[in-house]
Amino acid sequence: MTWAAFAVDYVVRLVLAHDRGRFVRTHLLDLAVVVLPMLRPLRLLRLVTVLSVLNRYAGAALRGRAPDPPQVRDHQRAHLTEPGKVAEVGRMPRRAAGQHHQRLAAADPEPVVVQPGPVVGVAVRHAATVVRHDAQEGRRRGSHDRRPTHAGRKPGAPRTTRSGGVGAAGFEPATARL
C-alpha cells in the first residue's frame, strides 16, 4: 500500500519531468526505493525532513526563543500593548527590526533571563491568572461565608455548632453543620 503511494509519486514525477532520461538519471535513489524491496526502509528518509523541522522548533522553544524571525516576534511581544508599534515593526525590514529590538534590549533595565516561547508564555500567564483568580475568589467567598453567620448569630451565641451547641439542639438543619 505505501509502496503504491511511492510508486505513484515516482511515476507522476517522471511524467511531469521534461527530460525523462535526465530525471531517471538524477533520481536513481527514488527509483531504487520503489523497485528494490530491500531498500524499502529508505522511505523513512522522508521523515528526516520532518524531524529537522521539529528539531528546529523544539530547539528554539527550549532555548526560549521564537522559531524563525526571532527579532520581529520578540519585539511584537514586547510591544503587545501598542498596536501602532507592532504594525510599524512588522513593516520594517528584518534587519531594521532586529536593530530596533537590540536598542530596546539595551534600554531595558531588567535583563530578561528566560523568554519562554509563545505557547509556554501563554500557558504560564494563564496559570498565573487562574491562581490569582482563585485567590481572589477564595478571599471573596471567605468573607461571604463569614458575613451571614455574623449577621444571623445572636449576640453572645456560640459561633460554631459543635455537639451540645445550638446546632445539636435542633434549631438548625443538619447541613448547616457541614
Binding site: 500500500m1 509519486d9 511531469l16 519531468a17 521534461h18 521523515l47
Partner: peptide
Amino acid sequence: RRVSPTRLQRWERTAEWPLTAASLLFLAAC
C-alpha cells in the same frame, strides 16, 4: 526547459505530506 517548474513543483508540494504520512504508516507497519 529542463523541468517544468510549475507542474512538477506543484506536484511535489502536494505529495509531500501524503508521502510523509505514508512513510509513517510504513514505519508503524514494519
